[in-house]
């Protein structure tokens, strides 16, 4: 559990972060979003005390961060940064084992943990353990960065634009990896990003920042349905907001039982998002889709007309 109450940060005479408050319950995923220089990275760094806050309270599991020893505090918080920050003079295995080694785990335990993490993050140990960071691709390096952050099994994970420097395809892959990981590990995560799609995709709670202040916060859906002002609206994609909202819910949640009418030609798996369903409708020139389960058995139907009506009537639920 992370709580920030009226936290400010002053650099010299510049106000970098201005009286912000938000909280991340245990096991939840929070994304700090905003344009560059809005204070989101500073906010993140105040949580593990790489930057000390000027006023207000930052409370971690019921205790103010100031009361922790900063070194001990950081060892129990996973930290991932944009250009990976891997140690270039250590190989992959040694990089991943950094924090366990600082915590003086026995060598055999460290080795076991490193093995486990490498397998977990799809980095075959035989191939990667002895490689050096400069021999890795950007995506591989960042996976090592995530593994290193997870090494001592921290409850809290801080990520500072972890995928910002990667190409779109690699970024997409790592995002889905992170989503899977979070579904299994339930860490308390704070992610800093300027990529709204990334935030919408991963986060339970969005905090939109601008010039050191919080402009709006809430669930992704709440923000998409009611952006506070033009800034949030444009950050959320302006006219594309509807589609972004559609990408948050699954076909399964919106399908209707199969009716007496002839089933539609086009099919779509029930785990796909509404946005993908709309795209299929446009591509296939049809208003109805047959929804199938993973065995390709029809289980329902999706109709454009009903979807449009529904969007006005009630807020959709998140899958």
């Amino acid at each position: 559990m992370i709580e920030l109450h009226n936290v400010s940060k002053i650099f010299g005479d510049a106000l970098a972060v201005d009286e912000i408050s938000f909280s991340v319950p245990k096991g939840k995923f929070c994304a700090l979003v905003g344009t560059s220089g809005c204070g989101k990275s500073t906010t993140l760094r105040m949580i593990n005390r790489l930057t000390e806050h000027s006023s207000g309270d930052i409370i971690l599991d019921g205790q103010a961060v100031g009361a922790y020893n900063p070194v001990q505090l950081r060892r129990r918080i996973g930290y991932v940064i944009q250009d990976t920050g891997l140690f270039p003079h250590w190989n992959v295995a040694r990089n991943i084992g950094t924090v366990p080694r600082l915590l003086k785990w026995p060598a055999s335990q460290i080795r076991g943990r490193v093995e486990e993490l490498m397998q977990f993050l799809d980095l075959p140990s035989a191939e990667f353990a002895h490689k050096y960071p400069h021999q890795l691709s950007g995506g591989q390096a960042q996976r090592v960065g995530v593994a290193r952050a997870l090494a001592a099994d921290p409850d809290i994970l801080l990520m500072d634009e972890p995928f910002g420097a990667l190409d779109p395809i690699t970024r997409e892959k790592l995002q889905s990896m992170l989503a899977k990981l979070q579904a299994r590990l339930h860490k308390t995560v704070v992610l800093v990003t300027h990529d709204m799609d990334e935030a919408l995709r991963l986060a339970d709670h969005l905090v939109v920042m601008r010039e050191g202040k919080i402009v709006q916060q809430g669930s992704p859906l709440a923000l998409l349905q009611k952006p506070e002002n033009g800034f949030v609206d444009s950050l959320l994609g302006g006219l594309e907001r509807g589609l972004k909202q559609a990408s948050l819910s699954r076909v399964r949640a919106h399908m209707t039982p199969l009716g007496p009418t002839l089933p539609a030609q086009s099919r779509i798996p029930d785990t796909y998002t509404l946005r993908q369903a709309l795209s299929v409708m446009l591509r296939d020139h049809c208003e109805r889709l047959t929804v199938v389960d993973k065995h390709d058995v029809p289980v329902g139907e999706l109709s454009l007309r009903k979807l449009v009506k529904e969007a006005h009537a009630q807020p959709g639920e998140r899958a």
Partner: peptide, 25 residues
């Protein structure tokens, strides 16, 4: 600086950071 930042973020003491990261590099 990113490497040093990561070293601090991992929870290295200043002396550990100096001898394990800065000096070897």
């Amino acid at each position: 600086p990113a490497t040093l930042d990561a070293a601090s973020g991992m929870g290295m003491r200043p002396a550990q950071r100096f001898w394990q990261v800065r000096v070897p590099l």
